[in-house]
């Protein structure tokens, strides 16, 4: 049921030209995936999925869409061959999917009984012992992303602003004198 919901939402995401509709559909995909994670005995991952993806990333995306007041997506004009590329790629991936679907039927088909892997305690334990290095790397990556985002979205650096202001003042002064 959630799988069907996820597929429907993702198709509608790609189909809609309006970015805001796409964003809403994507939120639908995320929430249905979170429900699937709960059925897969991973409540922690499900909660983080809702919190991070639906709660933070997509809110940011919606915020940016509203801030920039984007219009509809234009159809391809000069890159028409991309349609063909997309179709071929889609077909290949789908074929691959079905191949996997049949190949996997031979591997373990019953979930491990009483799996404790999804418990917050176990995730935390292995996160800070066995996988400490990846966690540290991800932390540094996040820090770099924060700094990068701040620098990127700054308008102009201070000296540049002063230059622009000085130029404007000068032009205004000239105008007054011409008058």
């Amino acid at each position: 049921m959630f799988a069907g919901l996820a597929i429907a939402c993702s198709i509608s995401m790609v189909y809609h030209k309006n970015p805001l509709y796409s964003a809403i559909s994507l939120v639908g995909v995320f929430i249905s995936l979170a429900c699937i994670y709960v059925t897969l005995a991973a409540p922690f991952i499900a909660a983080v999925q809702v919190l991070v993806y639906a709660g933070a990333i997509m809110v940011l995306v919606v915020f940016v869409i509203m801030l920039l007041n984007l219009d509809e997506d234009k159809p391809l004009t000069n890159l028409r061959y991309l349609y063909a590329v997309g179709a071929v790629l889609g077909m290949t991936l789908l074929a691959q999917t079905f191949f996997i679907f049949y190949a996997v039927t031979k591997t373990p088909n019953t979930p491990v009984e009483n799996s404790t892997a999804g418990l917050t305690l176990n995730i935390g334990k292995s996160m800070y012992t066995e996988y400490l290095l990846p966690v540290e790397i991800v932390g540094i990556l996040l820090l770099m992303a924060i700094v990068g985002a701040v620098i990127m979205s700054r308008r102009l650096s201070q000296p540049q602003i002063e230059l622009v202001k000085a130029k404007e003042d000068f032009e205004a002064y000239q105008e007054r004198h011409d008058y």
Binding site: M13, V14, L40, L89, G90, L94
Partner: peptide
Amino acid sequence: LATYLGLSGILFTIGAVGVIY
């Protein structure tokens, strides 16, 4: 397991085609 992998494959395909379109 195959169901989940199939679902994942379908979602991935939709995403990949979407990036191109």
